[in-house]
């Protein structure tokens, strides 16, 4: 009961820290990562599938390195490297964001690639045999079918991104996990703060997966 009372009290005193700052920054960071990561991911995917071999190798190397090293390490590199590369000062959250975007883009590019390659080769052959060129075939025949393969995996990636932004708290950038650190530091009520943050993460992801589910069903209905 005391536990419950503590939670109510924390929420009463610090709801702004959790709901406005914490959720706000987490959403901001996630949305930017997902949006920029998807766009960059498309380009990485194009590079990976391009006919120009050295470009394939370059993208393959980047993806392998990003997948083969810990996220936290990449955030550290972003945190220290990005300010050095830019001639002007950037807020820490931007440096962290850059690292998150590159990380996400690599995973997304693989999702796109596998989705495209999962489309039967016969589809491409049929389109080409009708005289369609490579671009027309990709846009009108392959991609519309690939989207259906891609969407569930892409949804997974979005959920992962929301959870991974918690690592940015290492650099105190203000997202949900940072708000946990702040409030815990002031109240010394560790479990209660963890509970609140955990519920908030869960709600965010639960809502997101529901929305993606609706979207997927819409796409299926168009079949």
């Amino acid at each position: 009961m005391e536990y419950f009372n503590n939670i109510v009290k924390i929420l009463h005193d610090y709801w702004r820290v959790f709901l406005i700052t914490g959720v706000g920054y987490t959403l901001l960071l996630s949305l930017v990562t997902v949006a920029a990561g998807s766009i960059l991911g498309v380009f990485l995917c194009l590079g990976r599938m391009a006919r120009f071999k050295p470009l394939n190798w370059l993208v393959m190397a980047i993806v392998e390195i990003v997948r083969g090293t810990p996220m936290l390490l990449q955030l550290y590199i972003g945190y220290f490297l990005v300010p050095k590369l830019l001639p002007f000062n950037v807020p820490e959250i931007v440096s962290i964001g850059v690292a998150l975007v590159i990380n996400s883009a690599c995973y997304v590019s693989e999702v796109f690639r596998s989705g495209i390659q999962a489309v039967d080769r016969g589809q491409t052959e049929a389109a080409r045999s009708l005289g369609m060129n490579g671009k027309q075939t990709m846009i009108k025949i392959v991609l519309p079918q690939a989207i259906k393969n891609i969407l569930p995996a892409l949804g997974n990636e979005f959920v992962t991104v929301i959870k991974e932004t918690s690592m940015a708290s290492t650099f105190f950038v203000g997202e949900l996990m940072t708000s946990y650190l702040i409030v815990k530091g002031r109240t010394f009520l560790t479990m209660e703060c963890l509970f609140i943050v955990g519920v908030l993460y869960f709600v965010l992801n639960f809502v997101l997966t529901r929305l993606l589910g609706v979207f997927e069903r819409r796409l299926k209905a168009s079949d």
Binding site: D120, A126, R128, G131, P144, D223
Partner: peptide, 20 residues
């Protein structure tokens, strides 16, 4: 080749109709 393929119809073993 795209120009010439227009004049060569092809039918495949596995149909390859466009499902979407």
């Amino acid at each position: 080749i795209n120009l010439h393929r227009q004049k060569m119809g092809m039918v495949f073993q596995h149909f390859n109709v466009f499902p979407h």
